[in-house]
Design a protein around this nucleic acid. Structure first.
Lengths: 337, 337
DNA sequence: TGTTCTACGTGTAGCGTTCTACATTTTTGC
DNA sequence: GCAAAAATGTAGAACGCTACACGTAGAACA
């Protein structure tokens, strides 16, 4: 069925390093893992040989006995530039470690998680997982796990890293109110993709109530498809009691809202104020000038990675790291006289 | 130094499947690889056992002898939503195969390539690699390789998949000219990140000349940093002989150009027309309405994957797949009276 | 009828690491 | 100066799978 691959230069193995350095294979392995019981002399000698032969340990072989020094990241989507921030954080946490991150992308993590376990990842970071607690526990039972963007303080088998989405929701509403926008609607998702969205909605509700705007609470839920979001926004903006402002659950959605508003000839923020979430790079652009809640993606990525490595190293109690979000104000939510 | 990880449920191995099915380990392996010499009866029996025990082969172990059924994708960046299109193509090519893709992100592929070879990827797809032909040949010598966005028809050790960037450059200029824009500048990169950019510049030059606009040729090169791009664009737009139109080497750059133009109070396309490349989803938004060259990312990803698997299966002669780009016209480049 | 094929299964030697158990040398404490 | 302890190094058995080399049995052929 399949032909033989063409012959390729064979790899340098640990054995060759050992014989070059004049020591045992076990000794080289020890240096590699910087395990206990290696003299400086030996280490130096071995490292020289490794350098000279340009030796690189084969992850598959390591995996068969110990770890592969590979972490798996699972993103729900590649379109959202916010994930690039998280990734930057992961990378900076990985500097000067032996670990390497491999990414996968999948809305429903399930099958990808299996694939990553099959490939002997030492641990997994799930980003915005659309999974039940139960399912996450099952996964955590089989591989060290950290979730970014999953609220479950009770989780004991895995760690979580979040920004305080409830506070984020509150901040968005509070900011809009301070700028004189009263009728604040929230643009959310029809199918809640994670616990994150619930928290943001909750924050929105609570703050609206506290601001005495309980009667204006209006959560509009759109399917995640581009066309449908725009349809939903259009319906909202054309309705008789058009809101003053829209709190969008994501910058990406906010950009779509801006698009629809622009199409309808509405001006932002005079006719409609808009605020997003994530503080993506695109917010800054003059065609958007989008006010957004910053959740420090880089910090999220960094902390998650740190926690994951701790867990791989044997920590068993769970930790839950929370970042405080902050408003980054731009023109899209400015005060209107 | 590091503690022992908590005990985890041990994995089902091929041996257990074999004993459950009452056959040899070798037989199970054959079924797994659907190798030659397996009767239907045997196959059925083994598959039932695999199902029943929920067996999944361990990639590391397979890798040590044969293949891991894992492909590595290397992206230069995660911020550009265009790559999501390529990824979608890859995934659709992978459906109904045993293969799984793992992604890595790195501007200079070098160290990531090593990491992926260490992790026994069966093959690599490099996207917009910032590498010399020589270096790519070296890589191809060690692992099956396909490059997306690297022009080198002469390459014999690896395959390439491209859109015709030279034609793309021509189309952009031609389109702008047809809409009455004469002084077309090109916004390019200071440090050419790949052969792609050269081709687009070449296309731009050739078409400008053919349109009799050779004297207006103006390639402005900006560093890739956000701030610097905006600075460069600002300088261009404020210059005494401001161009009529800018051909941006990427949608992402075009959005920045739109931003600067907007900031300067210029209107698009009356004061300045803009055209991008990639036809990203964001082009459609009303705040951008960006005309762009579509290079069918999905097709690129699909073809690259197809070629890679062929190569893994033993093909040794190289193939070079080319997609024809097309203009997707929007308001940013419309005719001005 | 004997001989040659072909199809189907199996046994088993690695693949390149890690890691336990042990042997040997050096250091320490008294 | 001697025993005990600590430090350093080594041998070799796994890890889970693939693939080579064979063995066997029935079919096809002459």
């Amino acid at each position: 069925m399949t032909k033989k691959a063409p012959a390729r230069t064979p790899r340098i193995t640990i054995r060759e390093v050992a014989s070059d350095a004049g020591v045992s294979v076990a000794a080289v392995s020890k240096v590699l893992r910087n395990a206990y019981g290696v003299s400086d002399a030996l280490r130096t000698k071995v490292q020289a040989s490794m350098e000279k032969l340009n030796y690189r340990p084969l992850a598959s072989a390591r995996g068969l006995r110990g770890r592969t020094y590979t972490l798996g990241l699972i993103f729900p989507d590649l379109r959202n530039p916010f994930f690039a921030d998280i990734f930057a954080g992961v990378n900076s946490a990985l500097e000067r470690t032996q670990y390497q991150a491999m990414q996968g992308v999948s809305v429903s993590a399930s099958s990808l998680v299996e694939a990553m376990i099959d490939r002997q990842m030492d641990g997994l970071v799930l980003i915005g997982p659309n999974e039940t607690n139960e399912r996450l526990n099952d996964i955590a039972d089989r591989i060290p796990l950290v979730a970014i963007g999953h609220h479950d303080i009770e989780a004991v088998r895995f760690d979580t890293v979040n920004n305080d989405d409830q506070l984020g929701g509150r901040l968005a509403v509070r900011h809009l109110c301070q700028n004189g926008h009263k009728k604040v609607a929230m643009l959310s998702l029809a199918v809640p993709v994670s616990t994150v969205i619930n928290q943001r909605e909750l924050g929105y509700r609570l703050e609206m109530t506290e601001q005495g705007l309980g009667s204006s609470i209006n959560i509009v839920r759109a399917p995640q498809v581009l066309r449908d979001v725009q349809l939903t926004v259009r319906r909202l903006l054309e309705s008789r009691d058009r809101p003053d402002a829209i709190f969008c659950w994501t910058d990406l959605m906010a950009f779509e809202a801006i698009s629809v508003a622009t199409e309808l000839g509405l001006s932002i923020p005079q006719d409609i104020a808009i605020i997003g979430y994530d503080n993506t790079v695109f917010c800054e652009f003059a065609q958007n000038r989008l006010t957004s809640i910053d959740q420090s993606g880089e910090v999220l990525g960094l902390q998650a990675t740190r926690l994951l490595i701790e867990r791989i190293d044997g920590r068993t109690h769970s930790e839950h790291f929370v970042v405080t979000p902050r408003v980054v104000a731009r023109a899209s939510s400015a005060k209107v006289s």
